[in-house]
């Protein structure tokens, strides 16, 4: 399954993240994970949320430059070596990871690792064949 990440263009200045989280809070949207990638004076805020379409509309309405981006949210066991197996699988297939981050779903049991890759469909099929489970927004609720 292919998941959707929300990406917001952000000038690197105080209050920008707060402006994003305010909109999401008002709309009752739950954030499961976020990363901020910056390049000097501007950056991109990436968010995994429970209602990506609603988030897209609300942030767009607030005048922000926002896009949904297709990513893979992969379930991995929350124990040593859990991430390694995933990383090795992608490396062998020569799939390049542009951005990645994770969060724990259930401590000691399960975590979700989000990868933004250059060959999305190939990666999805590969992970399925290797026995990984990819999840969508429903697991984030």
């Amino acid at each position: 399954m292919i998941a959707e990440q929300i990406s917001v263009f952000a000038e690197n200045k105080p209050g920008k993240l707060a402006a994003v989280t305010r909109v999401l809070a008002q709309e009752g949207i739950n954030i499961r994970a976020t990363t901020i990638a910056t390049s000097d004076t501007f950056g991109v805020i990436n968010l995994m949320v429970d209602k990506p379409q609603k988030a897209l509309e609300a942030l767009g309405k607030a005048g922000m430059l926002v896009k949904t981006r297709k990513v893979l949210a992969v379930l991995i066991p929350d124990r040593p070596g859990g991430l390694d197996r995933l990383a090795q699988t992608l490396a062998v297939a020569e799939i390049n990871v542009n951005n990645a981050y994770g969060f724990v779903l259930e401590k000691g049991t399960q975590a979700v690792f989000v990868v933004d890759v250059d060959q999305l469909e190939k990666a999805e099929q590969l992970l399925q064949a290797e026995g990984f489970t990819t999840v969508g927004p429903e697991i984030l609720e």
Partner: peptide, 8 residues
């Protein structure tokens, strides 16, 4: 904008 910092 495609949500990609590399592109920017």
């Amino acid at each position: 904008f495609q949500g990609d910092l590399g592109q920017l």
